[in-house]
């Protein structure tokens, strides 16, 4: 399940101030404390886990703004 792995990676890499259990799939991760530097750790872990590579065009706040958008991005890259 992509979403479960994303949640696990967010727990270890996101350095969020809101507990992950309180976040919905569309909750704003930046409001939950995600920083741009933590985003890099998150991306590296996602690339490793899913064997994908994020192109420069996807390196923006929009891609990593919510669990939902991260899952969408991974699915798009796996196609």
């Amino acid at each position: 399940m992509i979403i479960q792995s994303v949640r696990e990676i967010l727990t270890t890499q996101g350095r969020l101030s809101t507990p992950l259990s309180e976040l919905r799939e569309d909750s704003d991760l930046y409001h939950a404390g995600l920083t741009s530097l933590a985003t890099v750790g998150l991306m590296l872990a996602l690339e490793e886990e899913f064997d994908i590579e994020f192109p420069d065009s996807m390196l923006s706040r929009k891609t990593f703004g919510s669990i939902e958008s991260i899952v969408d991005a991974i699915e798009a890259l796996q196609d």
Binding site: S36, L37, V40, P55, L59
Partner: peptide, 14 residues
Amino acid sequence: LHNSTLLLMHKGDG
């Protein structure tokens, strides 16, 4: 330091 972290991901190929 900030840039060098971002550059781990950013390839600069447009």
